[in-house]
């Protein structure tokens, strides 16, 4: 075994799994586990977390011993733009209504790829907004706020 990481991907995956397992165990610390014959709320979570911890450790070990491609890479632009767009939609929907929330969603979300020119963008906005109002508000009768 060498000291360099042979597969950062596996090592990182193992770290993440281990961290989730430890976090779960910590959150479950106060719950009663009971016994095998009399399981309480804490039994199953602990069982799953221990198994998860074991598989996390095994994956980390693999990261030290097995070769794998080194590049991880992270696409900042799409991941941030999509997430911010969806959260903005959630924040605006109840305050400014559906039409403007969709504008924010596709405006910010569009930055994830190559943004559309103003003309096609407006057409897309109008189509999506009217389709959503027609289907969800009129068709299915959802209590949606449409305008501010």
């Amino acid at each position: 075994m060498t000291h360099t990481l042979r597969s950062p991907q596996d090592f990182a995956a193992g770290l993440l799994l281990g961290a989730i397992a430890l976090g779960g165990l910590w959150l479950a610390r106060g719950w009663e586990a009971g016994s095998l014959a009399m399981m309480q709320a804490g039994f199953f979570p602990r069982l799953v977390c221990y198994l998860l911890l074991a598989s996390g450790l095994a994956t980390m070990l693999r990261g030290l011993t097995a070769d794998a491609p080194a590049t991880l890479g992270w696409a900042w632009r799409p991941s941030v733009a999509i997430t911010v767009a969806v959260v903005a939609f959630a924040a605006l929907l109840d305050k400014l209504g559906l039409v403007l929330a969709i504008l924010a969603l596709i405006g910010i979300g569009g930055l994830a790829g190559r943004p559309l020119r103003p003309g096609p963008f407006t057409a897309l906005w109008a189509t999506l907004a009217s389709a959503c109002v027609a289907i969800f508000s009129w068709g299915l009768g959802l209590p949606l706020q449409i305008w501010p």
């Binding site: 767009a85 939609f89 959630a90 559906l98 969603l105 999506l128």
Partner: peptide, 23 residues
Amino acid sequence: FPAILVFCCIGTYSLRNDVFDVV
């Protein structure tokens, strides 16, 4: 993809009319 985004958001919202699900 913007259209998929819109339907994902509104479809999720329509479950319980709660923006929490969208987040």
